[in-house]
Nucleic acid binder design. Structure first.
Lengths: 152, 152
DNA sequence: GTCTTATAGGACCTGTTTAGTCTTATTTAA
DNA sequence: TTAAATAAGACTAAACAGGTCCTATAAGAC
């Protein structure tokens, strides 16, 4: 599966939403409220609030308090990567524990023959996520349900 | 994190072990028992037994009953990919649910702006796993703890 | 034949994680 | 001063992961 968890998905959706909104020439740069995104994507409000709080506490977005407040991207969308957001919610990209904490507590560490090839694989996956920026997500216009793009 | 679960790891270790053993010129092709792998990697025996049973039921390996029995790879190591094994234990490679079951039950499906770019990302990850064969894991000799290869 | 060494497979248990809720406090524009 | 917003901690139900236990079956060795 290799699946992102819900919070990560909500964070990615939110970041793209903000990037798109902030990038629009018509709108003067203004904050996006939790309520706005929750309504747009039908995400439970209190949960999304948690997600955005965490993004803010990690410096990916910036909070604007008070009425008409909300959040704005803390960096340019072209400088915020998918990997940055994924790692906030899921820790370092690592297909196995040993690629996070030097494998000291892995019973298989000694004489594990697949460490090296999987380390390379891990690096490639990390690179994919790091080279995909939020701006890349926000760039393209939405075209409905591209079934032939779905992986079987 | 994007982490494989334990069973997947055990399956990959086992497949590589069998490929290496079967590939060795010195040993006449013989089955590898659950016990042999469990001892080599200090994996709880009953759990590994489950893992190998599943691999066998899905056709990745073939069971040899009775004394001197065990398992052998059902296909050549060059024709069995990491993706094949991962998918046996974790289902289709998919960074989000909607890339498995046509997203019909995703509340965000309508108007989700990140579907297309993530579908591409998903395809790339799948391709990485599918193009890495068990033979590729077994090929290289083990060199101890390549710290500089580890992703931070 | 009957041991012994294997795989086969279902039932079960338990700790952790996930997704989500509830509540209270704080900030600030209008 | 009020209403709209974020901040943050405690809490809960359900799902999952990792692992154990037990009984059945197959087949080579003697």
């Amino acid at each position: 599966m290799m699946q992102f968890n819900r919070k990560t998905e909500y964070a990615l959706l939110s970041a793209e939403y903000m990037a798109r909104k902030e990038g629009a020439l018509s709108t003067p740069r203004r904050a996006t409220s939790t309520r706005e995104i929750a309504d747009a994507y039908r995400i439970p409000y209190p949960l999304l609030a948690k997600v955005l709080q965490k993004l803010a506490s990690k410096g990916a977005i910036r909070a604007v308090h008070g009425t008409k407040g909300g959040y704005v991207l803390a960096r340019k969308a072209a400088e915020l990567s998918v990997a940055d957001i994924v790692e906030i919610f899921e820790g370092p990209v690592a297909v196995a524990d040993c690629f996070r904490e030097e494998g000291s507590n892995c019973p298989q560490w000694h004489g594990c023959h697949i460490k090296a090839p999987f380390s390379e694989l891990n690096a490639k996956i990390h690179n994919l996520l790091a080279s995909t920026k939020i701006a890349d997500l926000a760039r393209r216009p939405y075209s409905s349900a591209p079934k032939e793009l779905t992986i079987t």
